[in-house]
Nucleic acid binder design. Structure first.
Lengths: 337, 337
DNA sequence: GGCCCGCATGTGACCGGTCACCATCCTGGG
DNA sequence: CCCAGGATGGTGACCGGTCACATGCGGGCC
């Protein structure tokens, strides 16, 4: 079933069929109608492979990421998928296993082979390496951490200002009377010396308030890692307020505090990050910074789409600053004994 | 950069290059080495589009699902991706928005256009409809609920026996002295009259024990829905044990119970389903049924891969029965007042 | 020494689209 | 009445692989 079969059945040339399926204007309405009727009758669908080969365009994007299940990345992926679907683009996924050069190159090769545009989730080291090593000329947009400085005008980056959000979250805690705020850290990309931008915002707030800046506690992304690292925090009676790099970490920390017999928020206040679906339903409900990853994904696709179809160069783009959502896990510092 | 360029540079015909990249045995080692050297030097990569067009094979699978973010489906997707990557298959995702015929047909069209194999996650109505309406002849494997009866030998289905697991979970609760067990239900596919197989297992245990069978409480998949529906359960003092269709629902229920001032497990016992990453870190830690979606995904891909490459027909396949993991959210029924 | 055969390799068609370019037909202005 | 030029539509090459088949060559066997 090719355009030539359709052409025969409709009594036109294959080129006319091609014009019809591509919405080319120079086709008489009567001819167009006849061809469309035959297409519907035969159930013709154009071959994606042939189209891609002949035109060089694929109408597809692939999302390159280190993980597809953690909340933020999964939500971002969903945003991409929705926007892509609306534009009838196909979406592929390509996971970078680790930050080893070989794994990064493999992933890049796979992503490039797919032929379409590329959306890189560069929230972590593997993603960031992939972004840095992506071949020039490949249509690409990246979701990144808040840049430390003003990015070059040509960087196709999308982010939310979570550095500022982290600062505000820290100030919220400080405003509650806590002497200082500890930080339970998600892994940072090595490019940003001194930790992620979330960490930078936290440090900034502390410094401005002349509060002590404790050593950040390194964790990972998952509740299990938050729990493991959180036990140290829970064991330290000097800790009364903790900002967590994400809500899963906060969940683990909450558990560690619970086991240590420390009440939240009476003894310790906890702030999460991202507003994952579970945050509002924990007991205590988690105060957290609401991030719209869904929107980040949509914007990434939108800009990539513009780049592919319009050729318009894509520059850096910040979304609205995420806002702190205060719930039950934060409260006034206990008065000094 | 095509195989002909490589051929010229290596002083062989394009066909010999083709044989080399496909690992065809009838090539002299010296020739092969020379061609491989040129390929490496030029950085040649075969065009996926041209390969697909000429051979009719795509080396890709697309996962058709109603959702990519809920734990079970996300984990399954991850399993598929890992297995696919190991086999150097590309993976695409295709989301069915709703169960409307139009949406289902669209999704199927998109999935079919991709050209490769298809993995349908048919845990819900949209997925199930897509499965039922998938064109015959398309290489396809589906992750489904536990079948009610022995499935036809030709059904390419993969599942875990969660009906039995639900029965065991219910029996665990009954064994703790609860008079009956309520069920907070995930949406069921209409094909299985009377609810999902999880519901069937629950009902079976109740019936065997001659316990009353309360009306299941319909919820959705998310904590928010579990909370909304759970409030009714929490308000009913007769409720002392609840089985939840998944862990997110259980989370919402836990919250509703907390707000209603009912202690878990002292007043009410709660069992979840799936063992999502957060289950073990809630306070109380959730007793739940551990599901290996990751493995389901791997198996789906493995069978599809066999179908595509080997042509071996794929029949139904049950994985090991998921096991109950007892944690803190279940306890003995309170002695009658 | 001639013949047959299998290995190694080359040749050209073909997959199903798109692209550049050409052929008609029709209309209107000079 | 003729010709320019826009509107329609057709022709054949081409994208970069794979496939079926042809060809050259060397060795074993009689």
């Amino acid at each position: 079933m090719s355009i030539r079969d359709v052409a025969n059945a409709a009594g036109v040339s294959h080129q006319t069929v091609s014009r019809v399926i591509n919405g080319h204007p120079r086709v008489r309405p009567a001819t167009r109608a006849r061809v469309e009727a035959v297409i519907a009758e035969l159930g013709f669908r154009r071959s994606v492979a042939a189209h891609a080969l002949a035109s060089g365009r694929t109408r597809s994007v692939t999302v390159l990421t280190a993980n597809t299940t953690h909340y933020g990345r999964a939500a971002l992926l969903r945003g991409v998928e929705e926007a892509a679907r609306a534009a009838s683009y196909a979406v592929g996924i390509c996971v970078v296993e680790s930050e080893e050069p070989r794994a990064v190159r493999d992933a890049l090769d796979r992503a490039t082979d797919a032929g379409g545009g590329l959306i890189v989730i560069a929230y972590d080291e593997p993603g960031l390496r992939a972004l840095e090593q992506a071949p020039a000329g490949l249509p690409l947009v990246a979701a990144v951490e808040t840049p430390a400085a003003a990015p070059p005008a040509a960087s196709p980056w999308v982010w939310t200002d979570d550095r500022r959000a982290a600062r505000e979250a820290t100030e919220h805690l400080l405003g509650l009377g806590h002497r200082t705020v500890h930080y339970l850290a998600i892994p940072s990309t090595t490019r940003s010396r001194g930790g992620s931008q979330r960490a930078a915002g936290w440090r900034e707030a502390l410094t401005r308030a002349s509060a002590a800046v404790p050593e950040p506690v390194a964790a990972g992304w998952t509740p299990a890692e938050g729990y493991a690292a959180g036990r140290r925090l829970a064991a330290d009676p000097g800790v009364t307020a903790v900002l967590c790099g994400n809500d899963d970490l906060a969940l683990g920390l909450l558990r560690a505090l619970h086991e240590a017999g420390r009440r939240v928020p009476e003894d310790v206040s906890v702030v999460g990050f991202d507003d994952a679906p579970h945050a509002a339903y924990l007991a205590p409900a988690l105060t957290t910074v609401r991030q719209d990853f869904h929107e980040v994904g949509r914007v990434c696709f939108g800009r990539l789409h513009g780049l592919i179809e319009g050729g318009a160069p894509v520059g850096p783009h910040a979304l609205a600053t995420p806002r702190l959502t205060v719930r039950e896990s934060t409260g006034p510092a206990a008065p000094p004994a």
